[in-house]
């Protein structure tokens, strides 16, 4: 338990190791720890930012969706309106066309009837004339009774 120069030797060891630790051990580890701390805090703030961004994006997406829905409803309504209008137009057109066709057919029929009537009239006149001719057996002069016969035919 005697004190001797070991004391001095140990002081030298102590100085060497403390110096070594101060030079080569502490700074790199401490720097790495600080860097990691910085990285973690950066990461956390980035995560916060990302969360905020996500929230904003979700909000925007919701708004877009609502807008799109509204637009779609408007378009559908417009289309419905347009379809109804088209149907109405078609109906109107069809009706006028139908009316036109009916009128045309009626006038045709009338014309046919008239022409048939004319024909019939002339034929009836001839038939009547022929009958009368047969009945009267040439007593009737067509030229003398033409006026009377024409009057008769016109009454048909």
């Amino acid at each position: 338990m005697n004190m001797n120069a070991t004391f001095i030797g140990q002081i030298i060891w102590f100085a060497i190791f403390v110096w070594f630790c101060m030079k080569f051990v502490w700074p790199p580890i401490s720097a790495a720890l600080d860097e990691r701390k910085q990285k973690i805090s950066d990461g956390l703030s980035a995560a916060d930012r990302a969360n905020r961004d996500l929230e904003l994006a979700q909000e925007k997406a919701g708004e877009d969706l609502r807008e799109a829905k509204a637009k779609a409803a408007e378009i559908i309504e417009q289309a419905n309106r347009r379809a109804n209008q088209v149907i109405e137009d078609a109906k109107g057109q069809a009706r006028t066309e139908g009316e036109r066709l009916i009128a045309q057919a009626q006038s045709e029929i009338e014309r046919e009837v008239n022409s048939a009537r004319e024909q019939l009239r002339s034929e009836v006149a001839l038939l009547a004339l022929a009958g009368a001719e047969k009945v009267l057996a040439s007593e009737v002069n067509p030229a003398a009774h033409k006026q009377m016969l024409d009057q008769l035919a016109a009454e048909l």
Binding site: W13, F17, C21, F24, P27, P28, I29, A32
Partner: peptide, 21 residues
């Protein structure tokens, strides 16, 4: 004591040299 101190500083400095974040 020198040996143990050397073990400490060598191990620690080897680890410290490869320290990363």
């Amino acid at each position: 004591s020198g040996l143990m101190g050397a073990i400490f500083v060598l191990v620690a400095s080897m680890v410290a040299r490869r320290a990363h974040a």
